[in-house]
């Protein structure tokens, strides 16, 4: 059951990410990214993180990507011209990215037994829900970081309003 879920949505995420890479129009890339985020929400759910699955859909697919689509439409962004790109990207970038990928895959496959298996579980031990544990940690030990985050969001809102004004 879980292997089917993982295969379907993992493949969907990878295909949509590749589509985002290959499409030339920004709006197509944005919609592909929405598919990636939805698939990742399903994978979060399969790992027992229901709260994050909901937050992923609401915050990322719902809010952030709508903002992206709005900006693409506001600026009337057309197809991008293909240019050579920077030299450093082809010399150091792609081999570097490939090396990072090979290294990570090698390490993960080598330590496959030590990393263990995942169970399809909504609840940890069935005792209390994932949301209860997150809320308990967030509002007791991590209360100060949580409040600092609210200040950060406020500063971000003010910054966005100031930066997007007509006369800068």
């Amino acid at each position: 059951m879980q292997i089917a879920l993982f295969t379907i949505f993992g493949l969907l995420a990878v295909i949509a990410a590749l589509n985002m890479l290959l499409q030339r129009h920004p709006i197509n890339s944005a919609l592909s990214l929405v598919v990636v985020m939805m698939s990742l929400a399903v994978l979060y759910w399969s790992l027992g993180a229901e709260f994050l699955a909901a937050a992923q859909i609401i915050v990322y697919a719902g809010a952030v990507m709508v903002l992206f689509v709005f900006v693409v439409m506001l600026l009337n962004a057309g197809e991008e011209q293909r240019t050579k790109g920077s030299k450093i990207a082809s010399i150091a970038g792609f081999p570097g990215a490939a090396a990072i990928f090979c290294l990570l895959t090698f390490i993960f496959l080598k330590n496959r037994a030590a990393l263990g298996n995942t169970q399809l579980s909504g609840l940890y031990n069935g005792a209390e829900s994932n949301l209860t544990r997150i809320a308990h940690a967030l509002f007791t030990n991590l209360l100060l970081p949580f409040e600092v985050t609210s200040v950060l969001v406020l500063v971000a809102i003010l910054g966005a309003v100031v930066l997007a004004r007509k006369e800068l």
């Binding site: 920004p26 792609f94 570097g96 490939a98 990928f101 993960f108 496959r112 263990g116």
Partner: peptide, 28 residues
Amino acid sequence: VPTSYYLILGAVLFCIGIASFLIRRNII
């Protein structure tokens, strides 16, 4: 599903992100 498969999927998506960051010319 082995945990390593999830980690490899994360690595694949991260490397596609790097490649996209380097190839694409549109700032959005």
